[in-house]
């Protein structure tokens, strides 16, 4: 597995954990320095983590394009 994918997987797991922490640990009202920092960090990281982990063009899209154009699509 590529380093990028492993890093993405770890970032995804951490971001989901800290997002949940921010909301569960504060009983629903996320305020204060630690809880809001966690929520925001989780929000930003959760956008990046899965992209690094699963960011290749999906097979379904690739096959659709290949069927339409007849040319092979390179994985990005």
């Amino acid at each position: 597995m590529q380093f990028k994918k492993i890093a993405g997987m770890i970032i995804t797991a951490i971001s989901v954990a800290i997002l949940l922490y921010a909301f569960i640990a504060t009983g629903g009202v996320v305020s204060g320095i630690y809880a809001t920092s966690a929520a925001i960090a989780g929000f930003i990281l959760v956008l990046l983590g899965p992209w690094l982990w699963l960011g290749d063009v999906p097979v379904a899209i690739r096959k659709f394009i290949e069927a339409k154009t007849g040319a092979k699509v390179e994985s990005k």
Binding site: V29, V30, F43
Partner: peptide, 15 residues
């Protein structure tokens, strides 16, 4: 509905 994420305006602009 009952879960509030409270941040000041400036922080939201950055986020």
């Amino acid at each position: 509905y009952n879960t509030k994420l409270i941040l000041p305006y400036e922080s939201w602009v950055v986020v």
